[in-house]
């Protein structure tokens, strides 16, 4: 029972992380709720593999992001999710306070990136250091810097393309 209590406490302390990852990789509320459950289930299943070589949140990010990828793969073949009403969490819908336009731009930019870049971008947005990003993703610290500057270039290019399209219209 002690293990479960420790786990529940850890989940409660880091629940924001789970919701952030789930929101980042899904488009609909139902899908997000399903992913939240999948992440928690898999965190519990692999709780014994947490070896305290990294912080608990680093380990959680890694598991949550991996589950999100595997969830994408299985999405179309999913067994219906557990009927738990996550709406009761009073979890605010993904969005920016009073700025829907910025949300749309952000979503569009992120959706055009591949899953590798997307994962790195999410951790960057979460204010993770290069060392933490390297640890979660499994690449070197210097590669994180290189990847981030390439992502910057890609985003800049996308924004330019968008601006050109708008100008032509």
């Amino acid at each position: 029972m002690e293990k479960k209590d420790t786990f529940i406490k850890a989940i409660q302390e880091n629940e924001r992380l789970i919701f952030k990852v789930a929101s980042f990789y899904t488009d609909s509320k139902d899908d997000r709720d399903d992913l939240v459950q999948d992440i928690i289930y898999n965190l519990w299943k692999s709780f014994d593999t947490f070896q305290q070589r990294s912080s608990f949140s680093t380990w959680m990010y890694r598991v949550a992001m991996n589950v999100a990828i595997l969830h994408l793969k299985q999405r179309k073949r999913k067994v219906p999710a557990v009927p738990i009403d996550l709406g009761a969490l009073n979890f605010a819908e993904t969005g920016f306070d009073g700025n829907e336009e910025k949300l749309q731009v952000l979503r569009k930019l992120m959706n055009d990136l591949n899953l590798f870049d997307k994962g790195i971008l999410m951790l960057y947005l979460e204010d993770k250091s290069h060392t933490e990003i390297a640890e979660i993703i499994g690449i070197s610290k210097s590669n994180v810097g290189t990847k981030l500057s390439r992502i910057k270039q890609k985003l800049r290019q996308q924004v330019n393309n968008q601006n050109q399209k708008t100008a032509w219209n």
């Binding site: 629940e15 919701f19 929101s23 009073n90 819908e93 920016f96 306070d97």
Partner: peptide, 12 residues
Amino acid sequence: NSNNRPANQNSL
């Protein structure tokens, strides 16, 4: 600044 977080802490 995004709003995508639980409104209450420890809502799970």
